[in-house]
């Protein structure tokens, strides 16, 4: 029971990260009906950028796990703000260069272009930053013991680390802000209009190009945030983290019902929990296999996902 609880906490933490990435997939799919294959790599760019900044902070400004809490928080805010900016620029550029010119081209064109873009990003970062994983000291340390139990000689404690609290709370805050934007602002309305019918939206005077760009930027910001959390959580990152995380986040988006933002978050949490539980109770080696299998099963048996609307193929 205690073990399960601990895994649940770990799963929720990981799931929050997947959920944040999944939103980017879901929003882009909603608005232009394609999988942004490069989204996982935009997440990676966010992750690597925050790594570099944290490293600079550590080497040149003495930032470490022992610094005062407020300083760490301040540093992280700066880091994530810049990482969001960088990721946004990347995703915006990708859309401009690789997807926008292909609107109206044949069906596979944007998809292949996206695959190309994903390779470009990975290789670009690999060449610029070398392929080695980049480890770093734990920045957010400490935590709370929720309960403990004596098992023979050993005590088993259920703990929640400050890092986990940070991840869960910041995800909640971000999600709330985000839901507000989508539901209450004219920007959100424009996005929803484009989702339903791009042509109609443009007839009604909505600037579709701009709305799509902003969607990509928003997705990138969330992905960058997730990238930083991911790197802080695992205290390591490299050019390849976007690949597996990207597929899993995509799985989350599909599981939640592609096009649905709460669905993406829910799917993310589920995938996080499934992955962690699988590692805890079955085998760590096959955790990715478990997540990918979920993707396949969901697509086959429940293609509309948990919160998505079933779609009848228009003939």
């Amino acid at each position: 029971m205690e073990y399960f609880l601990q895994q649940l906490i770990n799963g929720l933490t990981l799931g929050s990260i997947y959920g944040l990435i999944a939103i980017g997939y879901t929003m882009v799919y909603g608005i232009i009906g394609m999988i942004n294959f490069a989204h996982g790599d935009v997440f990676m760019v966010g992750s690597v950028t925050s790594f570099i900044l944290v490293l600079i902070g550590g080497v040149s400004f003495g930032l470490s796990g022992n610094s005062a809490g407020i300083i760490i928080l301040l540093a992280l805010v700066l880091v994530v703000a810049y990482a969001m900016l960088v990721s946004s620029v990347y995703n915006w550029t990708i859309e401009r260069v690789a997807y926008r010119p292909l609107r109206g081209s044949f069906r596979l064109a944007p998809l292949i272009s996206a695959i190309g873009m994903s390779i470009v990003l990975q290789e670009f970062v690999r060449i610029a930053q070398e392929a080695r994983p980049k480890p770093i000291q734990k920045l957010v340390t400490g935590g709370y013991e929720l309960m403990s139990k004596q098992v023979g000689e050993q005590t088993f404690a259920v703990t929640i680390t400050n890092m986990q609290i940070f991840i869960i709370i910041s995800t909640l805050v971000l999600m709330t802000a985000f839901t507000f934007i989508i539901q209450r602002t004219s920007l959100g309305r424009a996005q929803r209009a484009c989702e339903q019918d791009t042509k109609m939206a443009s007839l009604l005077g909505i600037n579709v190009d701009r709305t799509i760009s902003i969607t990509f930027i928003m997705g990138a910001m969330l992905a960058a945030f997730a990238g930083m959390l991911f790197f802080l959580h695992y205290t390591e990152t490299d050019f390849f983290v976007g690949f597996a995380a990207g597929i899993k986040a995509f799985t989350a988006a599909v599981l939640g019902g592609i096009g649905s933002i709460p669905g993406a978050m829910m799917g993310g949490l589920l995938i996080g929990i499934i992955e962690v539980m699988w590692s805890a109770y079955f085998s760590v080696e096959y955790k990715d296999v478990a997540a990918f299998t979920v993707l396949v099963l969901v697509l086959i048996f429940m293609p509309q996902g948990l919160l998505g609307k079933p779609e009848v193929e228009k003939v």
Partner: peptide, 23 residues
């Protein structure tokens, strides 16, 4: 002149699911 409908009026027939309809 597209004839915007008042907000209370639901479009009676949702047009086809446009997703992925590009070709």
């Amino acid at each position: 002149d597209i004839g915007e409908r008042p907000a209370t009026v639901k479009k009676p027939a949702p047009k086809a699911a446009k997703k992925g309809g590009r070709k």
